[in-house]
Design a protein around this nucleic acid. Sequence first.
RNA 1: GCACCCGUAGCUCAGCUGGAUAGAGCGUUGGCUUGCGGAGCCAAAGGUCGUAGGUUCGAAUCCUGUCGGGUGUACCA
Length: 560
Amino acid sequence: MRDELAAAIAQAITELFNVTISVELSRPDEQFGDFATNVALQLTKQVGQNPRAIAESLQPKLADSLHEWVSEVTIAGPGFLNLRLRDEALIRMAVPAVPSGWTGKVVVAEYSDPNPFKVLHAGHLYTSLVGDVVANLLELAGATVHRVNFGGDVGMHVGKTMWAIVHELGGEHPDKLIAIPDDQKLEWVSQRYVTGNEKYDDDVAAKAEMISLNKQVYAIHAEHDTSSPLAQIYWTCRQWSYDGFDALYERLGMKPFEKYYPESEVSDLGLATVKAHIGPVYEESEGAVIFRGEPFGLFTQVFINGEGLPTYAAKDVGLIQHKFQDYHYDSSFIITDSSQKDHVAVVMKSVEQFEPELVSRTIHKTHGRIKLAGGVKMSSRKGNVLSASAILDATQQANQAARGESQDQTVLGAVRYSFLKNRIGSDIIYDPAESVSLEGNSGPYLQYAHARARSILRKAGLSDDYNFDIIDEPLEAAERSLVRKISEYSEVLERAITELMPHHICGYLYELAQEFNRFYEHNRVVDDPRQALRLGLVTRYANTLKAGLKLLGITAPEQM
RNA sequence: GCACCCGUAGCUCAGCUGGAUAGAGCGUUGGCUUGCGGAGCCAAAGGUCGUAGGUUCGAAUCCUGUCGGGUGUACCA
């Protein structure tokens, strides 16, 4: 209907002034109307009249041609034309449209990307949630989305961790790993990385052993070694990491990943590909193999180091090819924080030289980083990292303290919402002391608002699928405000999908719930003369809220 | 040094494809319960939109300079 309105206005302008213009309809303050357009201001030059005069000649024309949908056209301010919809038109708009921008497309979404043997920290938590919801948006818009994860199961951090593990076990004794309790395995392994790192910096002998262990780990993969003591330790601890990650993902309410791409499985192809293109694309320099990015406004990156091992740049070369072989995607999203921007650009630029099609289908979507209060940044090497599980635990305790009890879905709603409500792009300040909010503009506020609405419907004895038909009866002001807000959902959804920005949904749902809470404060539903209409209204509201929350990966409880 | 990102209320953030009095939450202060769930509702105080110019009928929004912060910049990922 929005498009039809815009088209009708455009046609009126053509008939009146003989000019063509693309009409933008915005949602003004409620006091002004349901839609507003500034065409009169835009036409000033083309028509050669002042905007007010243009608006005045348009007004009766629009009132007539939009008569079917619009009850009133008014002029305000410098020349805005405000449209007030007929109630029945507004009600018709309050049905969510199904977005279709990605229908039939095959999409790979890679996100989260924690490294085995290291902690899954707040930054991973954030990037995971962003990826999860972006994937949800693409799916809703009709895409077939393959969710994949990538992480470094080989490399120096593994050498460091393996060194510390072997020392902790008093030698290569995989049998001693049994002593580690299940719920401490992930933590135990990531703690070994921290101690390994400390030794690396101030113990020359240890450092040499770590470098050696790093190579041995590569050898474990090359030889498919599953039986040597070191290999047993490696495979066991790697699995602990993956199991720990999966447990966290589940706790975060994320849709499961379809596939993990461990670096060890993509590095061979990456290495071979880089080597195969030495000359035209990559070049040897100082014992390493590099790609010169300067001609493209980028920087030079090492792809194969002096030891002959692939760096993460070469691994990414392998990864992009594996992903395409596995999925033959139309589009491939890589979701990471902004510090990866240039690195990915260099890798892509190099691959573009021999596989331009793959690169043109790849979209690197970056977001900000998580910082601690006061702008302190986290460093896993320094040990001042905030783990994902610490955030969940802190939120759980805060909820417990406030309510005397804590439901998992409330914690999940609080955490997901508090991260997702921010526009993707700039850094996020996380204050562990204040934790995530449970009231005001928060996940639990929305969940609670939903539970209250369902409570009304339960009291009226309604099932979930009750819907009301268009009613001739005029809406009361409070009812109309709510319908008006519900009718915005489709537009918000479309914008969130176009921009792939989940925060639009958060902001909208909060306004929606607020609108309902205002209505609820002063208006009865059950046993009111207007019950029939209002039950339908509450149902549509609750369904809209639930649908939006679902996109965000937040449950909409019947009660809480 | 060069490249990119950011700077909006005490704090955390919306608003940025130019438009009507710059909006929320938290915090502060003051109200609201004989009625469907108070994790709620209403109100007040609080902002030269870092800063200086420019473009425009109109700039938080676009352009330039500048200050402040962040990120990246050859063998970690």
